[in-house]
């Protein structure tokens, strides 16, 4: 009986606590230290996830991530959102990504897509390109380009997702 209840609990725990991968193609990218990882290892722990494609030389991208950085701690406290910054810097600049990110004290999870493989599979043309996933890993919104103030609109959507609401089609 105990074993049965235990296994039942495990099954329930599995349903509720299983970290699911995001609804993105499985492509090999590198973490900020240059180690190869699969994009399917990026998890949504029941909280909204933002994936932002950027590069160290892309000014609007850096503006967007800097603007989000100013409020990121508040965003995380309120909604648990995770921002994943995937750099498409190629070998010319990929070694600079770690000092760039750390030098600016950014708290994001950063990956490097050195030959744009994930970018290509996700249909991204120009950057910055931002994707928003709900707690189940489902893609609910994407946006190309950055105008100052866009991060506030993004945050409104993140708040809605965190409250369990669905977003209107965009």
């Amino acid at each position: 009986m105990k074993k049965f209840v235990l296994s039942l609990l495990v099954v329930f725990a599995g349903f509720t606590l299983t970290a699911q991968s995001l609804d993105i193609p499985e492509v090999t990218i590198k973490d900020i230290n240059g180690k190869q990882v699969s994009s399917s290892s990026i998890e949504a722990d029941g909280k909204p996830v933002v994936i932002s494609f950027w590069a160290t030389w892309c000014k609007p991208c850096v503006r967007e991530l800097t603007a989000i950085d100013e409020s990121y701690i508040d965003w995380q406290d309120e909604t648990g959102v995770k921002v994943i910054a995937i750099s498409i810097d190629d070998t010319r600049n990929s070694a600079k990504v770690a000092p760039f990110v750390n030098g600016r004290n950014w708290e994001y999870e950063v990956y490097i897509d050195e030959n744009s493989d994930l970018r290509r599979m996700m249909g991204v043309n120009n950057i910055p390109h931002t994707f928003l996933f709900d707690g189940n890993g489902k893609l609910v919104y994407q946006h190309n380009g950055y105008a100052q103030g866009d991060e506030d609109l993004l945050y409104e959507m993140i708040q809605k997702l965190a409250r369990g609401e669905t977003l209107e089609a965009h």
Partner: peptide, 15 residues
């Protein structure tokens, strides 16, 4: 060859 040192608030790269 690349060498980098990075910590909170500081990043250095030599190539």
């Amino acid at each position: 060859f690349n060498g980098t040192y990075s910590t909170r608030g500081f990043g250095l790269i030599v190539q």
